[in-house]
Design a protein around this nucleic acid. Structure first.
Lengths: 208, 208
DNA sequence: CTCCTTTTCGACTATCGGTCGGTTTTAGTA
DNA sequence: TACTAAAACCGACCGATAGTCGAAAAGGAG
């Protein structure tokens, strides 16, 4: 049936917006249904629980955030750019920065954490293929690729999700990436241009 | 006054135990007070909120988990062993594995995450000093030490907190650590002996 | 004893996630 | 068109839970 699916999508979008602006914990089911103009029963006709709604909202976000990564894999870009592109694609887009800002508020750790985990899981195979491509081209040289790729992703997530990361962090991250993949020293240095350290442009300093 | 502090500590210990066994979300304030044999009002005389109780419980756990790290710093162990010791110290002790097991249940992500963050923040300066010691001895060679140390901790936390990590993960982690600190290849290989991969001894395979 | 502070009490409130029995809409079918 | 079964919807109600509050003990210090 069509009707039902449209309604569910509508609810999902309302939930998405509310979860992100107010935080998951601070959004009540009543908030969602009053905004949608439906009754409690209707909500629970579409969702088993509030938690399941969160899970589906997260699914939506992940699909949105990872589809770019897939496109990059099939693009004709040079391998190092592909890697940067993929890592950048799972970072907040400029126009969504306010969203991601909200994502990091303390009341959203749950959602944030779940998203990160699932994104990594989905991106590892993509990045693995890219690295293998780089190895064939003689740019990289390493074994245990999925494991290495996973660590890269864990690091980039953990570091760049912070409120502020320093230029030194970026420096070290590039260094690790090169050594991790057995790339030539400096071959990833161009990343520095692409990543804006919030600490270097802002007035407030200090970690965390 | 003495009376009050003892009571608070008592409550904190009950909360600690319940949070860990049942999970933070699944532990009600009523659970805590009924176990302590006090009234609701008394609980809120000592704590502003349930959330603040969690914060204080976490503080306790962190003090306990990081005091070992401090002792290792001042011990006469060789530098590589010190590093392994520190990293191991912020991992679940064998006799506490059931506790940490509960820590990783889905209902405890919040607590778990908060703990990890704060432990890393506290351990970075300690590990930094150890690495500096290693540099003086010519074992390591690198700059930007706090940043590198932080990444090591982020990785070890993220990897070894998983339900299962493979031998390949350990392999790569060792490789990264050596390259990160500019250590000689193989100088950290002895770590392998110390870390038991749950995937290698268990029957169930597959990541996550 | 009196006065003040610390500690304790428990009934009460507000909110929230979730349930349930029943009603209306929709869409297919005779 | 009339009937029917399924899909969609409703909202009163429930149980649990975090947090409040005014008052009552408990415990000194003078």
């Amino acid at each position: 049936m069509k009707k039902g699916e449209r309604r569910k999508l509508e609810l999902l979008e309302i939930a998405y917006r509310l979860f992100i602006t107010k935080g998951y914990e601070n959004t009540s089911v009543d908030d969602i249904i009053s905004e949608a103009g439906i009754a409690k029963g209707t909500y629970y006709y579409y969702f088993e629980s509030k938690e399941q709604t969160l899970e589906e909202v997260i699914g939506m976000m992940i699909d949105k955030e990872t589809e770019t990564a897939g496109q990059i894999l099939d693009s004709p870009l040079p391998v190092p750019q592909k890697i940067v592109g993929v890592i950048a694609s799972i970072r907040p887009a400029p126009e969504e920065s306010s969203i991601e800002g909200a994502l990091m508020q303390p009341e959203n750790i749950v959602m944030h954490q779940k998203i990160k985990r699932r994104i990594i899981e989905k991106v590892v195979p993509i990045l693995t293929k890219i690295v293998e491509e780089g190895i064939e081209q003689g740019i990289f040289s390493c074994d245990l690729i999925p494991e290495r790729v996973r660590m890269m992703l864990v690091l980039s997530n953990e570091l760049f999700d912070e409120y502020d990361f320093t230029n030194a962090d970026v420096e070290v991250f590039i260094d690790i990436t090169e050594k991790l993949l057995g790339a030539k020293k400096g071959s990833m240095a161009f990343v520095k241009q692409l990543i804006q350290s919030p600490a270097s442009s802002g007035t407030k300093g200090g970690r965390k």
